[in-house]
Every structure is written in C-alpha cells, then in structure tokens.
C-alpha cells in the first residue's frame, strides 16, 4: 500500500530487486543505503561535490546524493559491491581487475572515496578503454580523495587500462 505522501520505488540494486514506499524528498543515496542496504554507497558531502556516492544507473554514472529515489524508479543500479557487472570477472576474493589494480598501486588508504571512484572508472574505461593520462586526470576531476594524493589512483587506472588492452 502506498501511504499518503509516499511513492513506490522499485529498482534493481546489484542484481537484487527492491521495492519500497518513500517520501518524495528521499535522496537516492539514502534510499540505497537505508532501504536497500547498499553500504558501498558512501556519503562524503551530500551535495554533489565529492563523488563518493557515485553509482551506475542504467549504465550511466550518477551522484546518488543529487537524485531523488523516485527519479530512479524502474532503474538498474550497480554499486562498488557489484562492480563485476561493469568490470571484468572477479577473482576468488570477489575483486575485479580494476579493484586489484587499486590494491596493487595502493590507490586507497581509508577507502571512503574508493567505491565511487571504482564505479565511475569502470564506466569510464568501458567508454574509453585506452585513455591517455590526461583523460584519466580529467575523468577524476569530480572525485575527491583526501588520503592518497591521487597519484596512485591515476597509476592504478593506467595499469587497469593497460591490462585490458587487446
């Protein structure tokens, strides 16, 4: 039953169907975290400036803190927890090639920014499998990382792109 002042939202999150009634003002980020249990969606600012909350919505990178849950109704969402859907197949530890490259290059310290960067980067590499360094730097312009100094993140993406080269 849809209560007064709520809307039904049905989405698929990392392969799992979720449907719930939400207040119209509910942000997609909050809906993903609180209702869908998608804790890989991190909230670093809540206002579109950091990129930590980035998810793939129907194959497009979106900042889930800048969207309402109702806008995503009927959509398919991938978070870092389901990165394999965007990146290559995972290994035994359930890590995809991109995640392994981040680990190998120490491209994460606290790991709070990481899920958003992974999702955005997996989509970026699908669209541009062999980016130049300048393109990688440009791609990262909307993602803030306070720990790593960003250099290792660039290196990890370069390596991941190189590794998937034909």
């Amino acid at each position: 039953m849809t209560g007064v002042g709520t809307n039904r939202v049905a989405i698929i999150v990392d392969g799992r169907a979720v449907a719930a009634d939400v207040e119209p003002r509910t942000l997609l980020a909050d809906f993903l975290r609180d209702t869908c249990g998608a804790v890989a969606v991190h909230i670093g600012c809540g206002e579109g400036t950091c990129g930590a909350c980035t998810v793939a919505l129907d194959g497009i990178a979106v900042r889930s803190c800048l969207m309402l849950a109702v806008q995503a109704d009927g959509g398919t969402i991938v978070t870092a927890a389901g990165l394999a859907a965007l990146d290559g197949p995972p290994d035994a530890q359930n890590l995809t090639p991109l995640q392994l490259a981040f680990r190998a290059h120490h491209a994460l310290q606290c790991g709070f920014c990481t899920p958003g960067i992974l999702v955005a980067t997996a989509l970026f590499l699908r669209a541009n499998p062999h980016p130049t360094r300048a393109e990688i730097v440009d791609h990262l312009s909307g993602h803030l990382c306070r720990c790593t100094g960003n250099v290792p993140i660039i290196a990890a993406i370069e390596a991941a792109a190189g590794a998937t080269a034909p």
């Binding site: 975290r33 804790v39 969606v41 870092a80 927890a81 890590l95 120490h106 994460l108 709070f112």
Partner: peptide
C-alpha cells in the same frame, strides 16, 4: 605487503560508522 584492509574497502564493505 599488500594491505589486508583493501579487499573489504574495495568491495564497499569497510564497516564505517554510518554502516
């Protein structure tokens, strides 16, 4: 040595306070 905390964090299972 590769970091032991990385796999959790890379999968978004870092168990931060909000989680």
């Amino acid at each position: 040595t590769p970091r032991r905390e990385d796999p959790d964090l890379l999968r978004g299972e870092g168990k931060f306070l909000a989680d």
